Simulated scan of single mutants.
Amino acid sequence: MSEAGKPRLCRVSGRDTWHIYHQRKRISTGCTDRASAELILARYAAELSRPTTRAVSVSEILSLYLNDRREALKPGAERLSWAHKPVAAWFGEKPPEAVTDRECRAYAQKRMETGIAPSTARTEMQALRAALRWAAAQKIITECPNVPLPSRSPPKERWLTRDEAHALIGGCEAFHIRLFVILALGTGARVSALLELPWSRVDMERRIIDLRDPGKARTAKGRARVPINDGLLATLQEAHAVRETGWVIEWAGDRVASVKRGFRAATIRAGLEGVTPHTLRHTAATWMAQAGVPLWEIAGFLGHSNTAMVEETYAHHSPGHLKGASSSGYDPSATVPG
């Protein structure tokens, strides 16, 4: 702002109070002494220099945040793309000020009333919170509203016994579904990691599968390099011999985008209930814990950077779980010291 355009103090003829003169307007300070008027002038000038923010809706913030993550190739964009849709539909063109604790709790409650799991509602609220924090950091909004999150869902306990796993594999009519099931049980990998796995990251000579995608940034939900056991090796060799594309999981000469329908049909044929593709990852980790594999090794196999989640979910399956603590308790058969 040029010196000529800056606000300044002036006095109006016939009046004792000081005024602020700015842009051909006079604004009374209400002060008769110059020192007090100078303080008011300073506050007025500070307000003029404060950056202004344009009106923006919650829906627009979510879209801007999603685009930013996609353009910067940041992790989480795919999950955010589905998580932000119901949130945008709920808040619509409302301003960020409409994101209150009460409104967030009402949203989560409504979502769960429609059959959505608490964990899904939590993920959607996390997407909203991340978008608002990003908007505040980018000066798109002046303040970031608080976004309370629904409680976490308890860890899923459903896992397959060996007999159930054999029944599931037997229920797979399509070869690519059978391959997916055997891969998931043998690697403990997430569904997305297997559907995105190319043959170039499968080394059958060294018997290693590299689930890490070099084109994607590393996230807390990491991926690992896992060994290929004997049963998995035979299945991979069979699949590699008849491959038509560069993808491990393929069908009709194309990459498979989803196994939900074929997997669901296989569970029905096998007579299994409460089983989803993610159950296979849970099953692989449970089997390892039951076999006495150290939790830190299970964490590494699953791609986790620490054992906290593994300990919470799988420690009780370990044959040695709490045995040390139990051995220090009262044993009626022990000799009582004299």
Rank of each mutant, 00 (worst) to 15 (best):
His278Ala: 12
Ala299Leu: 05
Ser305Thr: 09
Glu312Phe: 00
Glu250Phe: 06
Ala285Thr: 00
Gly271Leu: 02
Ala308Phe: 03
Pro277His: 06
Ser305Asn: 12
Gly246Arg: 15
Trp296Asn: 08
Met288Gly: 02
Leu272Thr: 08
Val293Arg: 01
Arg269Met: 02
Thr279His: 11
Leu236Tyr: 06
Asn306Tyr: 01
Val248Met: 06
Ile268Thr: 14
Ala284Phe: 03
Ala285Gln: 03
Thr235Trp: 10
Glu312Asn: 07
Ser258Ile: 05
Ala284Lys: 01
His282Trp: 05
Glu297Cys: 09
Thr235Ser: 13
Gln237Ala: 13
Ala252Val: 04
Gly271Gln: 08
Asp254Arg: 15
Val275Arg: 15
Leu295Glu: 00
Arg243Thr: 06
Leu302Cys: 03
Trp287Asn: 04
Ile268Met: 11
Trp296Pro: 00
Ile298Phe: 03
His278Ser: 10
Thr307Ile: 12
Ala266Lys: 13
Phe301Gly: 05
Met288Phe: 06
Ala252Leu: 11
Ile298Trp: 02
Trp247Ala: 11
Thr267Met: 08
Ala257Pro: 00
Ala241Cys: 10
Ile249Gly: 04
Ser258Gln: 11
Ala257Ser: 12
Glu297Phe: 09
Val310Met: 02
Leu295Tyr: 01
Ile298His: 01
Gly262Asn: 11
Ala284Gln: 04
His282Ala: 12
Ala289Arg: 05
Arg264Thr: 14
Ala289His: 04
Glu244Met: 10
Val293Trp: 01
Ile268Ala: 13
Gly253Tyr: 09
Leu295Ser: 04
Ala270Phe: 05
Ala265Lys: 15
Thr245His: 14
Thr279Glu: 02
Ala252Gln: 14
Glu238Thr: 13
Arg261Met: 09
Gly303Trp: 01
Arg243Ile: 09
Trp296Leu: 11
Phe263His: 13
Val242Gln: 09
Thr307Ser: 15
Asp254Thr: 07
Thr245Tyr: 13
